[in-house]
């Protein structure tokens, strides 16, 4: 019974008016959650957490850098799942969501690279290093840009979205390959400090703001994803009747 209702709900999401309505209802909550979590997280990160014994206050950029890096990668996985759904079931709203995820993911990748570079200058003495993690992040940014460029290059946007979905899945195979191949230059960046399984190497007092910021970033990704999808949908369907009905309803 529950399965049946889930199935019906899933299929209803394929209908543009239902999808539009859902986005409109969900997105303010996601943004509100983002603002609240960021407020808590940044307060703790800037005032509560003690300075690092070696890096002083400058380590605090970690609370932006690490969540952005996590989200850059998680965003790709979400986008790939959406792309698989879009290609298998040919649901137009999911195609639109996949394409809406790419610029958000690219923005987080760029944020991660920018904050990392700002952090690297005082700590490592250089803005950039040809290190495994940095390089794979840069390549990830180019994969995101390629997906966005491919989608934008088609006149028929539906076709563009479907072709770009294939590229998203190709990238999913490609990213681990890039990651492991660039590991061959083991270099400057430290290994992972936070481990889900086993002991983390970070002092417990430094951890809570990181978790708050990670949640905040997830919520922001969701909010931006829904808003972007809704805008793209309205833009594509602007001459259709249901849009007039919805706008009329709102006015």
């Amino acid at each position: 019974m529950i399965f049946h209702r889930l199935k019906v709900g899933f299929h209803r999401l394929g209908s543009p008016p239902t999808f539009h309505k859902l986005c409109r209802i969900l997105s303010p909550w996601l943004w509100a959650g983002f603002v609240a979590c960021t407020a808590i997280g940044l307060y703790q990160a800037l005032y509560v957490v003690p300075p690092d014994y070696q890096q002083g206050d400058s380590f605090r950029i970690l609370y932006i850098h690490v969540p952005a890096a996590w989200q850059a990668m998680a965003g790709y996985v979400i986008m790939a799942i959406l792309a698989a759904i879009a290609l298998v079931w040919r649901i137009r709203t999911v195609e639109i969501m996949t394409m809406a995820a790419a610029p958000v993911g690219a923005a987080f990748t760029a944020l991660c690279l920018a904050t990392g570079s700002l952090w690297g200058k005082p700590m490592w003495g250089t803005w950039w290093a040809w290190d495994a993690r940095l390089t794979s992040m840069l390549v990830l940014l180019f994969i995101y840009l390629g997906i966005m460029g491919l989608y934008a290059a088609f006149e028929d946007r539906r076709k563009g979205a479907r072709v770009a979905c294939i590229l998203v899945l190709v990238g999913l195979v490609n990213i681990p390959l890039i990651h492991f191949s660039v590991e061959w230059w083991t270099t400057l960046h430290q290994g992972s400090t936070i481990n889900l399984f086993g002991e983390s190497k970070m002092h417990p007092s430094m951890l809570p703001p990181l978790i708050w910021m990670a949640i905040a970033v997830k919520l922001m990704f969701g909010g931006a994803l829904l808003d972007r999808s809704r805008n793209d949908l309205v833009d594509q369907d602007r001459r259709k009747r249901w849009i007039r009905d919805v706008i009329g309803e709102e006015a």
């Binding site: 180019f142 840009l145 390629g146 460029g149 491919l150 290059a153 088609f154 563009g160 072709v163 890039i178």
Partner: peptide, 17 residues
């Protein structure tokens, strides 16, 4: 990139990664 008009620039961005 077959269905696009300006394939060549895109082509190199897609191949590089």
């Amino acid at each position: 990139t077959l269905g696009t008009n300006r394939g060549s620039v895109l082509l190199s961005i897609l191949v590089f990664p």
